[in-house]
Computed example of a mutant assay.
Amino acid sequence: MIKSITKGINLLFGDTLQKNKVFISNSLEFLHRERTLDKNYFDYVRLAALELICFEIRNKKLQGNVAELGVYKGKFARYINQYFSDRTLYLFDTFEGFHASDVKKEKKEGFSSGEQNFSDTSVEAVLKQMPSPNQ
Score class of each variant (00 low, 15 high):
91 L>W: 01
67 A>Q: 05
68 E>D: 06
56 E>T: 05
19 K>F: 09
128 K>I: 04
61 K>E: 15
40 N>A: 08
99 H>P: 05
118 F>P: 04
49 A>D: 15
4 S>V: 04
121 T>D: 06
114 G>Q: 11
7 K>D: 09
20 N>M: 10
114 G>D: 14
104 K>D: 13
109 E>N: 08
75 K>P: 00
70 G>K: 07
113 S>Y: 11
1 M>C: 08
14 G>N: 01
71 V>T: 05
65 N>H: 09
128 K>V: 10
127 L>E: 15
112 S>M: 14
78 R>A: 15
74 G>R: 02
43 D>V: 07
28 L>Q: 03
73 K>A: 09
1 M>E: 14
64 G>W: 10
82 Q>M: 13
78 R>K: 15
59 N>Y: 02
4 S>M: 08
80 I>P: 00
37 L>T: 07
21 K>C: 08
102 D>P: 00
49 A>I: 11
92 F>Y: 14
66 V>K: 06
113 S>W: 10
85 S>T: 01
115 E>D: 12
97 G>H: 05
41 Y>F: 15
34 E>F: 04
49 A>R: 14
112 S>E: 15
59 N>H: 09
49 A>K: 13
114 G>F: 03
21 K>Q: 15
108 K>W: 08
22 V>T: 11
80 I>G: 01
88 T>D: 13
70 G>A: 09
62 L>H: 12
37 L>P: 01
44 Y>G: 03
3 K>V: 04
111 F>L: 14
70 G>T: 09
99 H>L: 13
107 K>S: 11
108 K>T: 10
40 N>C: 05
128 K>G: 07
20 N>G: 05
70 G>P: 05
99 H>I: 04
39 K>S: 14
19 K>E: 15
26 N>E: 13
15 D>E: 14
34 E>D: 15
3 K>N: 12
18 Q>N: 13
31 L>R: 03
17 L>H: 08
13 F>I: 03
48 A>G: 07
127 L>T: 04
60 K>W: 00
15 D>C: 01
83 Y>R: 14
95 F>I: 04
79 Y>R: 10
69 L>H: 02
31 L>Y: 04
60 K>N: 08
57 I>R: 12
119 S>K: 11
58 R>W: 05
65 N>F: 04
127 L>Y: 12
100 A>L: 10
32 H>P: 00
123 V>N: 06
65 N>R: 07
21 K>P: 02
98 F>V: 10
61 K>A: 15
88 T>Y: 07
66 V>Y: 02
112 S>W: 09
77 A>H: 00
126 V>G: 00
44 Y>Q: 14
123 V>W: 04
46 R>M: 06
134 N>V: 07
9 I>L: 13
52 L>W: 02
104 K>T: 12
19 K>T: 12
2 I>R: 00
104 K>W: 01
76 F>Y: 12
20 N>W: 06
125 A>P: 00
98 F>S: 11
36 T>L: 13
3 K>T: 01
47 L>W: 03
58 R>H: 09
60 K>M: 07
20 N>Q: 14
10 N>A: 08
107 K>N: 15
34 E>C: 08
95 F>T: 01
46 R>I: 00
88 T>G: 06
46 R>H: 02
70 G>Y: 05
51 E>I: 00
69 L>Q: 04
38 D>L: 08
10 N>W: 00
120 D>C: 09
75 K>W: 05
130 M>A: 03
130 M>K: 02
27 S>H: 07
